[in-house]
Simulated assay, not measured.
Amino acid sequence: MLILRDLINGTKRFGELKKSINSISQKMLTQQLREMEEDGLVERTVYAEVPPRVEYSLTEDGMSLKPVLNSMLTWGKQYKEKINANL
């Protein structure tokens, strides 16, 4: 979810994703990105530079999750308000 959240706003480098999701290990982030790439949700672009530059972005299928994520965000905000009102 956090990877999708970050990539929904545009292309990111590995380091940017790692910094944004500071609670994830480098190994786990790499594993999740590879799985999402295999599932066709994330596209990995490698640039032939020194040092090598790798960027990640959502595919069309990945972007199709945006309405779902927005709905979950709306629900979460409403639920939080409900819980806070009952305190």
Rank of each mutant, 00 (worst) to 15 (best):
K66W: 09
E81L: 05
Q31I: 08
L4D: 01
I83Q: 05
Q78R: 14
I3E: 00
M28D: 13
F14V: 13
L69S: 06
A85C: 03
I21Q: 00
K27S: 12
T59W: 00
L17Y: 04
R34G: 06
V46K: 12
L17H: 04
V42E: 00
K18C: 02
T45G: 05
I24F: 05
G62K: 01
L7H: 02
T59D: 05
Y56A: 01
L69R: 12
L69H: 09
F14W: 05
V68P: 04
K77W: 07
V42M: 02
L17P: 04
G76R: 09
L29F: 03
L65A: 13
D39V: 03
T30H: 15
V54T: 12
V68Q: 07
E16R: 07
E60R: 11
N70E: 14
G40N: 13
E81Q: 08
V54M: 01
M72L: 13
W75P: 00
G15M: 03
I3Q: 00
L4N: 06
Q31A: 09
V46Y: 04
M36Q: 10
E38N: 08
L4A: 12
K27R: 14
M1Q: 12
K77S: 07
M1V: 15
G62N: 06
G76S: 11
T11L: 00
Q26G: 04
I8Q: 10
K12R: 13
E81H: 05
I3L: 07
M63F: 09
E38P: 01
L58T: 00
K66L: 11
E35A: 08
L87H: 11
G15C: 05
L41Y: 06
I83S: 03
L73K: 12
K77F: 08
I24S: 02
Y79E: 03
P51G: 07
K82H: 11
S57N: 12
P51K: 06
N22M: 04
M28T: 15
S57V: 13
P67N: 03
R34I: 15
I3C: 02
Q31K: 14
R53D: 07
L65S: 13
E49F: 09
L73A: 11
L17E: 05
N70G: 06
Y79R: 04
S57C: 12
D39Y: 14
R34F: 07
V46I: 08
E35F: 11
T30N: 14
I83Y: 11
E37Q: 15
E37A: 15
E55F: 12
V54E: 01
K18H: 06
Y79A: 04
N22S: 11
Y56E: 00
P67W: 02
A85M: 05
S71Q: 10
L17C: 09
G76M: 06
E81D: 08
K18Y: 02
L65T: 15
L4E: 02
P52W: 05
G10F: 06
E81A: 08
E49G: 09
S25G: 13
D39K: 10
E49T: 15
K82V: 07
S25P: 03
A85F: 10
G62W: 00
I3P: 00
E55P: 01
K12D: 06
K80M: 05
Q78K: 15
E35N: 13
T30P: 10
P52K: 14
T30R: 14
N86W: 10
M63S: 09
Q26A: 08
L58H: 02
M63C: 11
K82A: 11
P51L: 06
P52M: 09
M28Q: 15
R5L: 03
M36R: 03
